[in-house]
Each structure stands twice: as structure tokens, then as C-alpha cells.
């Protein structure tokens, strides 16, 4: 049997071999996870939907009835819901990613495959959820009478940016968690803090009224910029765009650079640690 040229086996790596196999694997793992979550319980998908909806319900009640933060904001309920959905995606993807490599120990120790597949499959699974949740968001937008505009075309770009941000963090966190189990409690707190640091429960304009610099600093967080731009482009053209909120379009390079930086850092750390993951587990 002729089997092609000889090659050197250098051991496990983050990304290696056929790119086709890389994506097949990531996709297969993601679909499997998604299926398991779907069919594991009686109401299946209902639960993945109900979580952001419940959170939304609570927040809406608090911030419209008790602390009327959103009283004079147009389409506040839909904006709140979209923010909750986008944040839930981010939190779900990253927190599931932290444990992902360790949880898949069986695979890591028994099969040769590009290790990066693992965190990528986690963010993919969360992305499937995001797409389904966005359907609900669009349903509420239609109910609220939000009109269709050309700027809706920004949606795919926003989702891709969010996906890259979440994936970058997933790579970083999952690789670090193999060595440092402290990553989990730390990330729980950080991810919670990012929720309040992003304009989900409050409109960024209200922050800017009190302290413009603070609003601009808050917008340097890529998550905040994406959520704000989603609001501007899809729901309320009267709101500030991410560019306006941060104090001019060129300033958007800051959250952009942070996003790219996190992705590159995550990739580099994961790539460095990948050959040793099976030994360190």
C-alpha cells in the first residue's frame, strides 16, 4: 500500500493538519453539544430561550417600574432584550470555554487532533443559541414597531466581531485553566462586571450626561461597543452609535485593538500550551 511521503510527527498542536478536518471536528463537536442540550430535558430548547427571557423580564420590571432608567428611552424593552441576548451569548461562550479542555480530557488524551477545535466548538455551540435567540429579538422588534432599515446589514459584522471576541477569550481561558484552576472564579467575577460595564440596563447617554469621559472609557470595552452599535443600527437610529458614544469614529480603533489583541493573545497562549495540554491535564 503506498501511503505518500514520509512526514515527521511533531506531536499535538493548536492548529494542524487539514483545515477541512479542523472545521469538521469543531462543527461536529458543537452540533453534538447543542443536540445534547436540546434533547436532554423535556422542554429542551425552551430552557435555553427562557433564561435570557427571564433575566430580561426581571430587569425590565426593575428598570421600568422601580428605577426608571429607561423611561425616556425609545424602544427600551427591545434594547434591553437585545443587550441581554448579546451579553448572554458572551457569558455563556466564555464560561463554558473555561472548563472545556479539561472536560474533554478523554479526547485530548486518546486522540490526535488540533486542540484549538475544543474552545472553538464551545463558541460555535453558543453561536447556534445566539442565532435562535436573535429570532426572538427580531420578533419583539416587529411587535414594538421597529422599522426595517439598511443599517440592519451591519448585523452579520457585529456578530462576527462578538464571535471573535468570545473565541479569543475562550482560547485564553481554556488554556490557562489547564494549569491554573483559579481562572474560573476570577472569570466569573470579571464576566459579571462586564455586564454592568456594558450599556445593557442603562443607556450610555445617561452616563455621558454625568461624566463624558467615563462613558467614553466604558465604550472601549468591545462588548459595550458592539451592544451599543447593535442598538443604533438595528433598533433606534436616534440613539448614539458606538462611534458617537466613544467620541468620534477614529476612537473606535481602541475597542477594535483590544478585540484583536485579546484574540491574538488567546491564540498565542493556546498555541504555546497546546503541545503540553495532554501532559498537564
Amino acid at each position: 500500500m503506498s501511503a505518500g511521503a514520509a512526514y515527521r510527527m511533531t506531536g499535538p498542536a493548536a492548529v494542524s493538519g487539514d483545515p477541512r478536518r479542523f472545521f469538521d471536528l469543531a462543527y461536529t463537536l458543537a452540533v453534538t453539544d447543542f443536540k445534547l442540550r436540546f434533547f436532554g430535558s423535556v422542554l429542551g430548547y425552551f430552557w435555553t430561550l427562557i433564561r435570557p427571557l427571564m433575566l430580561f423580564g426581571v430587569l425590565y420590571f426593575v428598570f421600568s417600574q422601580i428605577v426608571p432608567l429607561g423611561a425616556d428611552v425609545r424602544h427600551f424593552p427591545v434594547i434591553l432584550l437585545s443587550g441581554v441576548v448579546l451579553y448572554t451569548y458572551f457569558a455563556e461562550a466564555t464560561s463554558a470555554a473555561v472548563r472545556s479542555v479539561v472536560d474533554r480530557e478523554q479526547l485530548v488524551r486518546k486522540i490526535h487532533f488540533p486542540r484549538m477545535v475544543i474552545p472553538l466548538s464551545v463558541t460555535l455551540t453558543a453561536s447556534f443559541n445566539l442565532v435562535l435567540n436573535l429570532v426572538v429579538v427580531f420578533f419583539f422588534m416587529a411587535m414594538a414597531g421597529v422599522e426595517v432599515r439598511w443599517t440592519w446589514l451591519e448585523l452579520p459584522a457585529l456578530i462576527v466581531l462578538l464571535f471573535l471576541f468570545a473565541t479569543g477569550l475562550s482560547m485564553l481561558l481554556s488554556a490557562l485553566f489547564v494549569r491554573f484552576r483559579d481562572v474560573r472564579p476570577i472569570w466569573d467575577v470579571v464576566s459579571q462586571a462586564l455586564f454592568y460595564a456594558s450599556p445593557v440596563i442603562y443607556p450610555i447617554e445617561q452616563v455621558a450626561q454625568r461624566n463624558e469621559t467615563l462613558a467614553q472609557v466604558a465604550m472601549c470595552n468591545p462588548l459595550a461597543a458592539i451592544i451599543q452599535q447593535f442598538r443604533y443600527a438595528l433598533i433606534d437610529p436616534g440613539a448614539q452609535s458606538a462611534g458617537e458614544a466613544i467620541g468620534g469614529w477614529p476612537m473606535l480603533l481602541v475597542p477594535g485593538a483590544i478585540l484583536v489583541g485579546v484574540f491574538v493573545l488567546g491564540f498565542t497562549v493556546f498555541d504555546r500550551m497546546a503541545p503540553r495540554i495532554a501532559d498537564d491535564l
Binding site: G4, A5, A6, Y7, M9, P12, R276, A278
Partner: peptide, 15 residues
């Protein structure tokens, strides 16, 4: 199988 990396030495495979 490429699950562990050898610290030293070389492994050559075909197929």
C-alpha cells in the same frame, strides 16, 4: 499517535 510530544528525538511516519 501525536497525543504526547516527544521532548527529544524524531518520529517519522508515512500514511
Amino acid at each position: 499517535a501525536g497525543i504526547y510530544r516527544a521532548d527529544a528525538g524524531e518520529i517519522w511516519l508515512r500514511g
